[in-house]
Amino acid sequence: MYKKMTEKEKGLAVETVCLTKMYKDKAAVKQLNMSVREGEIYGFIGKNGAGKSTTMKMLCGLAGPTSGEIRLFGKPVSDPVIRRRMGVLIETPGLYPHMTARQNAVLKARCMGLADERSVDEALTLSGLSDVGTKKVKCFSMGMKQRLGVALALLGNPDLLILDEPINGLDPEGIRELRRLVLRLHETGKTILISSHILGELSKISTTYGIIKDGEMIEQIARQALEEKCLDYFQIQVDDVSRALVLIQEAFPKVRTEVSDSRMVRVYGLEEGAGLIQLLVEKQIQVYASGFHRMDLEDYFLSRMEGGKADV
């Protein structure tokens, strides 16, 4: 039975040091330092082309780094014993459409040198595919195919799972099924590194986040620390941001302001907004919209991507 490790007992499942990947003169990944602790669900966030997939391909050996180091569980990624502790699903799974789920799993298990088919049954059970019988993969929904891809990654009972955009193209039911699967796997003690553009889904499962921009890691942050940063704020849209900022700071010296775009100001630490709106209107600043909000993962991610300016 799995025994949950304490924080002190947890080591690093994944560590990269100055990891770099060049394609001709372009750096897809630049000096990237990543730390994924054992037992975490690590949500890897970045825009298209930010370097997420390239990083994951280097971690699992599908692409060689130009420079830098990769260590899994404290050992070099080139160590064949260590590599067997890792299961991978990069983009879409490679499946044989005219075979059943079990036939696909048995074939991969044999290619891996796994003679005992109990690992096949365990992987299919964990993925919720133990009862699909003789149904061919070509008849599977997209969600079922993704879960089968995860089942194939689970063969050999790896300690680390790397899942690159596993919910792309799934309908809401498929997304929910995959989310439940990831949480079940986490409960067994597995470390999961997962990327996705659907930030709302990552926020439901991740215990730690890594944000990558233009190939560089700009922040790694635990869920608890993110929740502390995602404070309530009063957002106001005006015609003159520069004048509004000066007036707000003079009238409310204890608040913190942040410009989110050319007309939008976020005000942190404000208890009520009526007085602020009245002040701006009296000073002949046009107020187009206003209201209280709570920053979520998407807001925080976009603020880091766009480099919102803060006036503290």
Score class of each variant (00 low, 15 high):
residue 95 L to K: 01
residue 115 A to H: 09
residue 139 C to R: 13
residue 132 V to A: 06
residue 152 L to W: 03
residue 126 L to N: 02
residue 91 E to N: 04
residue 120 V to D: 08
residue 101 A to F: 08
residue 92 T to A: 09
residue 114 L to C: 06
residue 129 L to F: 09
residue 99 M to H: 07
residue 101 A to N: 08
residue 156 G to Y: 11
residue 164 D to Y: 04
residue 116 D to Q: 07
residue 113 G to P: 15
residue 162 I to N: 00
residue 125 T to D: 11
residue 106 V to G: 05
residue 117 E to Q: 09
residue 121 D to N: 12
residue 152 L to D: 01
residue 133 G to E: 07
residue 148 L to V: 07
residue 123 A to K: 03
residue 114 L to S: 11
residue 163 L to A: 03
residue 141 S to W: 04
residue 100 T to A: 13
residue 165 E to K: 06
residue 157 N to V: 04
residue 112 M to L: 14
residue 144 M to T: 10
residue 127 S to L: 04
residue 137 V to E: 10
residue 157 N to K: 14
residue 156 G to D: 07
residue 107 L to E: 09
residue 109 A to V: 15
residue 104 N to R: 14
residue 140 F to R: 00
residue 97 P to K: 05
residue 103 Q to T: 07
residue 96 Y to W: 14
residue 159 D to P: 00
residue 148 L to Y: 03
residue 123 A to W: 07
residue 161 L to S: 07
residue 121 D to C: 08
residue 155 L to W: 05
residue 110 R to I: 13
residue 135 K to Y: 01
residue 165 E to S: 11
residue 118 R to V: 12
residue 145 K to N: 05
residue 93 P to Q: 01
residue 156 G to Q: 11
residue 130 S to I: 01
residue 122 E to S: 14
residue 112 M to P: 10
residue 137 V to M: 06
residue 95 L to H: 06
residue 150 V to C: 10
residue 154 L to M: 09
residue 163 L to C: 04
residue 110 R to T: 15
residue 143 G to P: 12
residue 113 G to N: 08
residue 101 A to K: 07
residue 164 D to N: 05
residue 145 K to D: 05
residue 145 K to T: 02
residue 121 D to I: 01
residue 103 Q to A: 15
residue 149 G to I: 01
residue 91 E to F: 02
residue 152 L to P: 08
residue 106 V to R: 13
residue 134 T to E: 15
residue 109 A to G: 09
residue 126 L to D: 01
residue 107 L to M: 09
residue 109 A to L: 11
residue 113 G to Y: 07
residue 125 T to W: 11
residue 127 S to C: 15
residue 143 G to F: 03
residue 127 S to N: 04
residue 109 A to P: 08
residue 99 M to V: 06
residue 154 L to V: 10
residue 90 I to T: 02
residue 134 T to P: 02
residue 147 R to M: 06
residue 128 G to K: 03
residue 92 T to W: 00
residue 106 V to D: 13
residue 93 P to Y: 01
residue 136 K to L: 15
residue 125 T to I: 03
residue 136 K to I: 12
residue 145 K to W: 03
residue 99 M to R: 13
residue 102 R to V: 09
residue 142 M to R: 12
residue 120 V to H: 03
residue 115 A to D: 13
residue 133 G to S: 02
residue 159 D to H: 13
residue 132 V to F: 13
residue 116 D to V: 10
residue 116 D to K: 06
residue 153 A to T: 13
residue 91 E to L: 02
